[in-house]
Amino acid sequence: MKKKRGIITAAVFIALVVLLNNLLNFMLVQPGLTRTMFYELTQENRECIILGASHGSYGLSAQELDKGLNMNTTNMCIGGEYMIDAYHILKYAVKNGSPKTVILDIDYQYLINRHDESILFHQVYNGYPSCGQKVSYFVDRIAREEYRGAFLKWTNYWQCYYMIDKTVKKKLSKEYREYSPYVVSMDKNDTYEGKGFISKSKKASKATTSVLEWNEAKVSDSECEYIEKIVDLCRRNNIKIIFTTVVQDPKTVAGQADKFAAADSYIRNLANKLNVEYYNFNYLTFEAFDRTEEDFWDREGHMYGETAEKFSTVYAQVISKSLDKTLKNEDYFGENLKEIYQGIKAY
């Protein structure tokens, strides 16, 4: 009898903790864009999926890519998306559709360091719909992370306590239930253009955040392992895969040309090993795509919306020609960063 009462008491307490935790998550965690992006991914059959991190989400307009590639494209690049996250997003996409092409945009910084703003902030995890894949994603990735980010998600948002009423109102709204991006909390200078593309207004002043210096010794085995897994998953599902790196602030590239070249060489070797095409758009000639530091809202190389749309046109041409096997590299790319960026003054 005592044992039974003990079990019931423990169960009630655990239920209370779970309930309170869910309540706090509901009241404090801000609606994120990833939830909408995952929803959009399953609404139509996306023929081309782009995976990557924030450079991709601000730099690649799926609308322009649709036109240029003549494919229904979606940009699943998410700030803080590591290769393990990209792999699980792709698994979800394959399960819920039949993509024909996958573009993996590789920001070398993710290969050498964990640099997300908070160890508790897992954008992909927070937006991942509840399903069987999420369990495998949890086991693979989140189980190794600190318990607060996994279970007590509100920890990262507790300072939003003053807007609980607004958050609750948003989450109870019809728009939220319908995955509308209009209820998502975003930077005031950001506009969600749909299909994963975030457009940054030129009103946003330039941030001084710069890139991490490439250091091959710091390359994470796990990131490379997941790149291989992504390639393998694509091959098993007859999906064409291409690696890219979107263009960055020319002054930053000019200042670290040797480091950028070393990173390029590392990724290119990996791509060759996996027999995947790799296009590093930092090697774009200025004739093919003219750009200045004014086109980027930080020194790290995130693009303003206008630039991103222009860049996406060029990007789509390259990818399209690559898929058709009509691409002449010399029409777009130079061979040596120092030559390409000569005359550009570094920061």
């Binding site: 949890f138 086991v139 989140i142 189980a143 190794r144 992370e145 600190e146 318990y147 980010g149 996994a150 279970f151």
Partner: peptide, 11 residues
């Protein structure tokens, strides 16, 4: 998997 990881507490 460390002693403050989600997986540890789940296990």
């Amino acid at each position: 998997m460390s002693y403050i990881s989600a997986g540890f507490f789940l296990i």
